[in-house]
Write a protein that binds this DNA or RNA. Sequence first.
DNA 1: GTAAAGAATTAGACACGGTCCAATCCTTTG
DNA 2: CAAAGGATTGGACCGTGTCTAATTCTTTAC
Lengths: 139, 139
Amino acid sequence: MRTTKYTRDNMVELLRQHGINPTHQRIEIAHALFSHPGHLCADQVMGITNAKHSETSKATVYNTLNLFLDKKMIREVIVDPSKVFYDPNTYPHHHFYNTATGELTDIDVEDIGLTGLPQLPPGLVTEGVDIIVRVRPSA
Amino acid sequence: MRTTKYTRDNMVELLRQHGINPTHQRIEIAHALFSHPGHLCADQVMGITNAKHSETSKATVYNTLNLFLDKKMIREVIVDPSKVFYDPNTYPHHHFYNTATGELTDIDVEDIGLTGLPQLPPGLVTEGVDIIVRVRPSA
DNA sequence: GTAAAGAATTAGACACGGTCCAATCCTTTG
DNA sequence: CAAAGGATTGGACCGTGTCTAATTCTTTAC
Ligand SMILES: [Mn+2]
Ligand SMILES: [Mn+2]
Ligand SMILES: [Zn+2]
Ligand SMILES: [Zn+2]
């Protein structure tokens, strides 16, 4: 569990740790992602970032999210055919996905045991394993 | 393992079994899905269906795929943020996803052991569990 | 401090998967 | 055959995401 305060200063630090030049917009976007409980889509990031003063364009939001992904400062979660979710938690973990509300919830990887994955064909390596438990309201 | 021959007649049968009125277009689309080794996207379905004589519109392709999903004659696989894959294999199974080529490969569910999923919050039921192993060429 | 170079941001056009709609066509039934 | 309901259709439309050329901001060089 992370217990850091998500101040602008800490965001600058975090960006530098990932080799990213901290600009106004990048700091704001990082802050939006890390200070909100996980799993925002680009749209929401833009909304939060521009809530007070509109200062970050759509192009920059996407540029920046893709830069963060590239530098592995965040990861993406693909569960909805119509949009990507961005996840500030890069520690290995899995997800519940509420298909009714669109809500994503983390599942700690410690709890999970996964066995019996077949051997990979030669010439391939595993990039990651995603487990998605699709859930919905019971009645 | 299914060993059926995917004749038009068998497609008609299959459609009826799922309570779907078998029309020309639906038979062709079902045939495209079931006679090709799994995991086509809408685009490919349309290409195959219209390969000889163009006779099925984009609207009908999407209508029909969504109808098949509704009736659980096929399932969808969401791994690529830009398009949905349609899977004629509705028997529970998981997937390798080659992020370089976009190729999807089935993993038999028999082989897999998965333990330690946390209790669901009350009022929720599990719809399904998807395990996606993302792989890429090794060097 | 100023000028030039490089990095980042921007508006808006664009691409593309997917949905919607009103018009047409097909099939069934009486 | 006529009427009704079901299915299909072209094309407009929508939302996410990318691209581009112009602008602005930051860094470096003098
Ligand atoms: Mn992307
Ligand atoms: Mn869909
Ligand atoms: Zn997460
Ligand atoms: Zn499959």
